[in-house]
Design a protein around this nucleic acid. Sequence first.
DNA 1: ACAATGAAAATTGTATACAATATCGGCGTT
DNA 2: AACGCCGATATTGTATACAATTTTCATTGT
Lengths: 233, 233
Amino acid sequence: MRQGGEKLAENLSVDIYERLSLRILKLEYAPGHRLTEEGLCAEFQVSRSPVREALNMLVQRGLVKKNPRQNYAVRELELKEIRDAYHVRLVLELEVVSLLCKQELDHAFLDRLEARWTELRDGLPDLFIHAAEEDEHFHHALAEATGNSVLAKSLAAIDSQIHFVRLSDITNLERLAKTCVDHLEIINAVRRRDLKNALIAISRNIEWAESNVEAALKAAKGRQIGKKTRSPD
Amino acid sequence: MRQGGEKLAENLSVDIYERLSLRILKLEYAPGHRLTEEGLCAEFQVSRSPVREALNMLVQRGLVKKNPRQNYAVRELELKEIRDAYHVRLVLELEVVSLLCKQELDHAFLDRLEARWTELRDGLPDLFIHAAEEDEHFHHALAEATGNSVLAKSLAAIDSQIHFVRLSDITNLERLAKTCVDHLEIINAVRRRDLKNALIAISRNIEWAESNVEAALKAAKGRQIGKKTRSPD
DNA sequence: ACAATGAAAATTGTATACAATATCGGCGTT
DNA sequence: AACGCCGATATTGTATACAATTTTCATTGT
């Protein structure tokens, strides 16, 4: 729901966490870039408490590594790791649609989802400002609909690792159109309890997304800011 | 490796985190039990900094719920959630053995694993003091062997939620024997690239484990310490 | 007697100060 | 000139102080 880049910081820790998280996912830091608490304090003009909490969150999430000699470094984002994440995501999402095809369905829920994506498809270039969020919402909503919260949470954890890829995709109109078609097909296959086609649709959707990853990642790495240290000697 | 209850606290935050984590996983707190920073400070005789960091870790991991700006509460551990966790775990572990049967194998690794579990099987009652750790190690090692670190990490996250169940199981000798048999069969099926039997073995292993969950959970809930507040009225 | 209001207490968010430890560089000795 | 020792510095771990906000409870007015 949050619109643009406005940050209505409910608290500083979360705010800093989100900003650092976004930077890392967008690969704005050189791999292995070192982060210090004091340095971030100076940059964000806050005390060490919220900075430290933000760093801890990043470490927990795996975006920042805490070195044996007690300092923080931005974790390197390997291409293989993205592929691995997509692999796991596919496995889990296949389970999601399998479960949905088996269990009792909330038709009102499917109706809302279908209406939304029909609307998005028809008003394509304009309505799709928040494509990444819409896409994440779709997949998350499906996962939640299974009623298996652990499954949903596991998927959410994966998604947070590949978030930046979706951010990179929002400019590609062809991709958006395909996404709409795929999502509508997934919805209807689930409604018909047509497991086979649901699996095909979700596979196509995710694998096609992954096929865009390498280019996006390489492009992002090209944009990478070289700041191993804040003042490089 | 860590033996008994000795706490060689490398730092207080992690120490407190682990102790609280264990308490919660063992269901020693009544569901919804309220935690306050100051209260934990008094109990552990430390300042709020490490306590706060421990609580944040617990929130991140989902063991503690944080009401914004208000307080912390031990999250209720539903039976359904355990079942859901086992469900996701099975899905992921099936993928693990599928991958292992497909890819190039590290035979030395399989040999070590087989030797270990043969040893455990033959010297059963005595050697199995750390059954839970051994079991977790086995499954984690297999996941790592796939080379998909995201998969391994996702599984580790699930395992941390059902850790206490394994702790409850270590007394059951029949369970231990079955575990050994299952694990050896999994190893050998993977070695033979016998996907079908590998899947059967891993399914049996996990589903049988889950079948013990409800009893363990109910037993644990029976032992639950009623401490909604530290001094109840 | 009950409800509304306001003050005090409780609790978390943030800032700062202090402690411990590791890293790096200079200085002296051989 | 090289090696090692020692101290200064940098950095994180922990403690405490202060701010902001919510909750609780007592007091007061109707």
